[in-house]
Design a protein around this nucleic acid. Structure first.
Lengths: 165, 165
DNA sequence: CAATAATGTCAATAATACTGACATATTTGG
DNA sequence: CCAAATATGTCAGTATTATTGACATTATTG
């Protein structure tokens, strides 16, 4: 069978795809700009934000678990994590079942900081969602989900991102 | 008037917004992963990709024009640009109207390289679009457009991104 | 008890970005 | 016409994030 107009057949010109690519670039820039400003005041970077975000999201996540989500080397994460622990933002607790593992938690200060970062970023997304409307949000999520690397899907699902429809 | 169910009123929980934030993170990672692999073979990074992309998109763009789009300092761009010019990917031509300006062009080698990068990235977007369907793509674009910083909108429009509906 | 796993650390290197300072050539406004 | 502004380029110094490779410690497992 030749692949012609099935319901999924879209007619996508290179121009349309190019615009999608550029939108991703500009939107991502906007998306990170608000937290970036706050982080700067603390002498932190985006790496700190990501660590804090996922520690907040997955209470008591292990170092290995965080590495898998972030997709960086342990040496890279360790530097960031050490800073956050030294600064009293993150606490590392020895595992009770497996004592080799360290379970990561936000301290009270860490939770406050997380909220500060999260507030501005959620606000940006909320405004975009509000302006775009419900069905646009559905579409946004669907396209992004398909853009994620298949290898990262398990990480997404761990975060409760299964498609529930 | 109290702000109740207007048609634009969405009921967005923090959980939904958080998932949007994480989707942006994971999708952007996937989005850049294919070009990143190619760039590595050439000893280039994402900054080179962005420069090449926008020079391709806006023929004869000036250095200042490129700086405005990329949102980096000229020192930062210059390092990348110098490499690309030295490697014969980009050509810098003195402006005819204003001789202070340099107009940037891709050489033939640069065009081939651009196509190589563009092909894999467009393929990723095309697959996501195809899998998600037409109306999802509309929504994707709408939400992303609202996520872009208002200050960057002029840049978007220069690239032919006006909403035409 | 040896192999494996989870974590942490040290060192070297690279890409990207920043600020600040300065130079050159060209255009423009008064 | 000349001073000011503009467009570009460059040098130096610093910071963040990331890499690879090597090695150590502790705890678990086969």
């Amino acid at each position: 069978m030749d692949r012609n107009q099935t319901s999924e057949m879209l007619f996508l010109t290179d121009e349309q795809l190019l615009q999608g690519i550029e939108l991703m670039f500009f939107a991502y820039k906007g998306f990170t700009s608000d937290p970036d400003r706050i982080l700067e005041d603390y002498g932190y970077g985006r790496a700190h934000h990501r660590a804090i975000h996922f520690i907040h999201r997955s209470h008591a996540i292990t170092v290995n678990g965080l590495l898998a989500i972030l997709g960086v080397t342990k040496q890279s994460l360790n530097r960031v994590l050490r800073q956050l622990i030294d600064d009293g933002m993150v606490e590392s607790r020895v595992g009770t079942i497996d004592k080799r593992q360290r379970h990561l938690h936000l301290t009270e200060a860490g939770q406050e900081f997380e909220k500060q970062l999260s507030d501005v970023q959620r606000e940006r997304v909320r405004e975009a969602y509000k302006a775009a409307g419900h069905s646009a949000v559905q579409g946004f999520r669907t396209v992004l989900e398909h853009m994620v690397d298949p290898e990262m899907r398990p990480q997404l699902e761990k975060l409760g991102m299964e498609r529930r429809e």
